Each structure stands twice: as structure tokens, then as C-alpha cells.
Amino acid sequence: MIKDESPTLSSIQQFKGLSRERVDEILQGISTLKVGVIGDGCLDVYWHADMTQSELSRETPHYNLPVTRERFAPGAAGNAAVNYKALGCLEVSFCSMAGNDWRGQQLQEAFRLRGINDAYVQVEPGRVTPAYCKVILQGLQGAEQEAPRIDFINEQGCSEAATQRLVQQLDLMAAQVDVISVTDQLEHGVIGPSVRDRLAYWAGQGKRIVVDSRDRIGHFKGMVLKPNELEALRWYNGSLKHLQATESELLRAGQQLSKLAEAPCCITWGDKGAVWFEDGQMTFVPTKPVAPPIDIVGAGDSFTAAFLSAWGVGCTGPEAVAFAHLAAAVTVGKCGETGTASPQEIRDRWQRLAE
């Protein structure tokens, strides 16, 4: 009988966790860190419609959506930038493209209100500033329900001329920051081949870079890759099918992805934890589930921000992953919002686990 030697989580080394003193050291280091974020900056729009004031139109057989309140926040890569700021990083800069439209103006204003440097955001005439518009219907007795989202999107990629201008802004930002966070989220976003090549150049110069890419995780070289399990398996299998993988398949995917990128890889796996791949070795970093109710929106951004911040101040990969688990746990506990994690909230999460 042939013995199955496929790797499983129980067969690889496991990281035991961080001490309170180490968490404090990491947070102190983060307070001196300068972070650059590049990627698809979106505007998150929230329209609160009070349906108790809705009226039937005189012209059409429809009731209106009476918006009584609206608010704006940076979304996608912009939300990653917000997370770095919430963690207490010394400086956070943002590099992207925006359109010459009301959403671009609101996005840049949202950055400035949060103390994020938007000097590397270039405005491109004809470009659409992506936006996720969420209509929140409010009814009797405080009832709320979110209607289908309205998205503003680009139907084609960036022009070569616009991309080269973005690369120039990336170079200016990279020269001023300690680490770079990459969010590649949209089908026709700003992270194309020329930007990936330039990021690889800066990684070769010793700049610590972490990539979060929804559909192109296998296209980056020399940078730490941080897919979730679905993104890793989609790359590994080449399709959206067969995403219910065994532990062995996920571990093989991480090994191959790290080998292809010629860099470490971190695959997050929901409330199980994450696996760190480096130099052919694997380390499982477990996490503890958060008691319901939970909301996973924004958890990936919080994880990435905390991971890169910790790694950027000298943590090992497994240490940085364990620190990121603390931040993500804070975020998923914030329902109805795209949450962030502050230094005190991270300390409080560590304390609850220790009790």
C-alpha cells in the first residue's frame, strides 16, 4: 500500500502566537512607518433612503427613494489606505488614477479628511472614477435593507500614455515610503503590465511590497502575494470551478504560487487562519473565530494592512500573519460598516484571547 504523503495543516509547523510585549513592540514600530498604497481607488457612496417618506410618482407607477442622508468613504485600494492610517502609520500616501468627475473630487476630499496624502493621484480626462453606491432603505421601527448596488465602472483599461504617467507617480511615491501595498481589484483597473514591471523593479531594490489581487495573483514577481483561499485556488485550477479544495490542494497551490513569484506567499483561509510559504517551507498560523454577529466586509484590507505594517517593521512572516489576524478579528466584529482596527482595539483583542 502506498502511503499518502500529501501535506496537511497538521503535518506542517505551526506558529504559536505573539506575546503582549511583542504586540506593543510592533505597534510602536508601525508609528514610524511610511506606507505607499497603489491600486484601484474607488469611492464608496452610502445613500440612506427613508421609505416612510416615499411617494407615488404622478408620471410613472413607481415610488421614489427619498434620500435623506449621504456619506462618502474611500473604497477598494482606498480602504486599504484608510486601514494603514487607522493602524497608526506615520504617513500614508495613495497612488492611482481618478476621473475628472464628481466622484473623483469626492474621493480626493475623502482622503484629505482622513489625513491621507493624495498627491500621487493623477486625474485623467475621460477616465471614470469607480464607485460603489449603496442604497440603504429605511422603513418602520428602524428596519433597514440594502438595495442592489449601483457601480460606476470603466469599460476598458488605461491608455499607455496614462499608464506611463502613473508609473512616474509610482516612482515618486516609492522613493518616499518604506513599504508599498498593492490592491488589484478591478477588471479594467490601474495595475497593468507596466505597473507590475515597475513594482518588480522596486522590489528588486529592496522595497517591501505586498500584493492583494483578485484575478491576477499569478502575474506578480518578487513581491509577497496575499490571496485568500478562493483566489489561490482559482489561479491553481485555472477556473472558478472546484473551489472546495482539500488542505493538501491548497498547500500545493501556495507552494507553486510562491515558487512562481520567487517570493513568499500568504494564503488566508477564513476563520481557520493562514499559511505562510517561504523558501519551500510552510507555516500554519491559526486564528480564533470571532463570536457572531460578524461582517467580513473589509477584513481582507485590514489583514493586508496589518500584515505589511508588521512585516515592514521587521517581523518574520509568521509574526506578521499573527498580528494581522488580530486586526482582521477586530474588523469582522464591526457590522454594517467597512471597519478598521486601531492600536488599542488590537491590544484589546489580544487581551480577550489571553483571558
Rank of each mutant, 00 (worst) to 15 (best):
M1V: 14
I2L: 12
K3Q: 13
S10C: 04
S10P: 01
I12V: 14
F15D: 06
L18H: 04
V23T: 03
T32Q: 15
K34Q: 11
I38W: 00
C42R: 09
Y46L: 11
D50P: 10
M51E: 09
T52M: 15
Q53I: 04
S54G: 10
E59H: 09
T60Y: 04
T60P: 01
T60S: 14
L65Y: 12
T68W: 07
T68I: 12
R69F: 09
R69W: 05
F72P: 03
A73E: 14
A73Q: 12
G75F: 02
G78Y: 01
A81K: 08
Y84D: 02
S93M: 10
S93V: 00
D101I: 00
W102S: 13
R103I: 00
G104L: 02
G104F: 02
E109D: 14
E109S: 12
L113R: 15
R114D: 06
I116P: 05
N117K: 09
D118S: 15
E124Q: 15
P125S: 10
G126N: 05
G126W: 03
V128W: 00
C133D: 09
V135T: 15
I136N: 12
G139A: 14
L140M: 14
Q141M: 14
I150F: 06
I150G: 13
D151Y: 06
I153P: 01
E155W: 05
S159M: 10
A161T: 13
A162W: 03
A162E: 05
A162G: 11
R165N: 09
R165T: 07
L166S: 09
L166K: 12
V167D: 10
V167H: 09
Q169V: 08
Q169W: 09
A174Q: 09
A175E: 13
A175S: 15
V179S: 12
I180V: 13
I180C: 14
D184N: 07
Q185F: 07
E187Y: 05
V190D: 01
P193W: 03
L199V: 00
A200L: 03
W202N: 08
A203M: 07
G204R: 06
R208Y: 03
I209A: 15
V210E: 11
R216C: 11
G218N: 12
F220S: 08
F220E: 06
V224S: 02
E229S: 12
L230F: 08
W235L: 10
Y236R: 11
N237D: 07
S239R: 02
S239G: 11
L250T: 11
L251T: 11
L251A: 08
Q255S: 15
S258D: 10
C265I: 06
T268M: 05
W276S: 14
D279R: 09
G280P: 06
M282D: 04
M282W: 03
P286Q: 06
K288T: 07
K288Q: 11
V290D: 00
A291M: 06
P293Y: 00
G300D: 05
D301S: 04
F303T: 07
T304Q: 13
A305M: 02
L308T: 02
S309D: 07
S309L: 05
A310W: 02
A310M: 04
G312E: 06
P318K: 05
A320Y: 01
V321F: 00
A322Y: 00
A324R: 01
V330Q: 08
V330D: 04
V332K: 07
G333Y: 01
G336H: 04
T338F: 00
G339D: 01
R347L: 12
W350M: 01
L353W: 02
E355W: 01
E355D: 09
